[in-house]
Design a binder for these strands. Sequence first.
DNA 1: AAAGGTCTCAACCGCGTTCGT
DNA 2: AACGAACGCGGTTGAGACCTT
Length: 303
Amino acid sequence: MGRAPCCDKNGLKKGPWSQEEDQKLLDYIQKHGYGNWRTLPTTAGLQRCGKSCRLRWTNYLRPDIKRGRFSFEEEETIIHLHSILGNKWSLIAARLPGRTDNEIKNYWNTNIRKRLLRMGIDPVTHNPRLQLLDLSTIINSSMCNNSPTQMNFPRLSGLQPRCNPDLLRFASSLFSSHCHTQDIPMQNQMISHIQTPPPLMETSVDQDVAVFPDLFVDTNLDTSFSVHDFQQNPAGYGMPSALTGGYVPVLNDEYYVSGEPPFVDPILSSATSNFQPHRSNSLGTFQFILSNMSPLSPSPTPY
DNA sequence: AAAGGTCTCAACCGCGTTCGT
DNA sequence: AACGAACGCGGTTGAGACCTT
């Protein structure tokens, strides 16, 4: 069936909105609420198509929109959610109060995506590209051959200077991401969770700091979190966080924030529940992730 | 100071999905 | 069930801002 145009384009204005138009739209929505975008322009006295009005409202005029740079926590949340959901910008935006899907999409394309590429990480698959081959080789070579849940720390420590610290920091979250994105049914399950998000809470990224506040690592100096942090994590409840240097709670199905009742994040818990080898063994998890990671993953598309 | 290149982000476009009849 | 309208999403574009030489 042929698709009808969203509106009669003749005589309708396009391009940037003027202050006057913004005011008209705001006045109308304050009086009547939003919705019925097709008829709204006529009723509001705007020479715009309904689509344009909706976009202007959702991306710019909405009063709850947060302006300004993305915070550290927001950025990590975006990376983490993107690793699970892919380019589902609206779903990602639903987890970031005050941010629009358009804003997140722009930020990803102009900022995060480029940075990942610079670091040798494929922004589509979140897998390491050429450079991370080195890291995985190092770590795999440090595993004890006959004990899959143990790592040879002295050997790994001796090799630390070879590792790019930025890659190390990003590697942890991306390794876990790799596991997430391979399981399509699980991904769909997660998407359905997010489409009906639970009552709003702080982002998962905030929580990873809150859970283990003492374990924050100076990311400018530390190049060996994979050993150091695991050793200090008393419960084995997390993977090192890529950006904060703390932990992302990937192992358990519940975690605590400052003495509050256990909270189960549907994304994190479902995303991680299928690869927890031992609840209290981070090293096992880490190796499990590594064993599922292809060290060299060429990007399907050129960048 | 000027020209050219790069970046940012608001806005548009087309398509898939949902809704109403 | 079928159809058309409306909505919402993700990809893309392009104007203006900013940076580099």
